[in-house]
């Protein structure tokens, strides 16, 4: 896969959070590992994933939740 922008990584992350909603909670590290596995380490690194998470959370598309650990989930109003 070619190089990706932070916005594209954020979209891929958002799709994963949506897909896992109600089935499995994802931590920031789970999302990072999943993105690096999916996109490839040459096109996506930890820093890029960190920025993608920031984009999703600051934009209100995802939010943090404490459920016995800190997870990234969909905001309740979008579920």
């Amino acid at each position: 896969m070619g190089s990706m922008t932070v916005e594209q990584v954020a979209e891929a992350m958002y799709a994963l959070v949506k897909e896992c909603h109600g089935k499995r909670n994802l931590r920031a590290t789970d999302l990072t590992k999943a993105m690096i596995d999916k996109i490839g380490a040459e096109s996506c690194d930890k820093q890029m994933c960190k920025e993608a998470i920031r984009l999703l959370v600051d934009g209100g598309r995802c939010t943090y939740a404490y459920l016995g650990g800190s997870y990234i989930v969909l905001p309740p109003e979008t579920c």
């Binding site: 959370v57 600051d58 209100g60 939010t63 943090y64 939740a65 404490y66 800190s70």
Partner: peptide, 17 residues
Amino acid sequence: KHGGLVGVRGYGGGVIG
């Protein structure tokens, strides 16, 4: 009971439900 979704936008900590 504690935890959940409560917090301020952009932050993942600082408020414990």
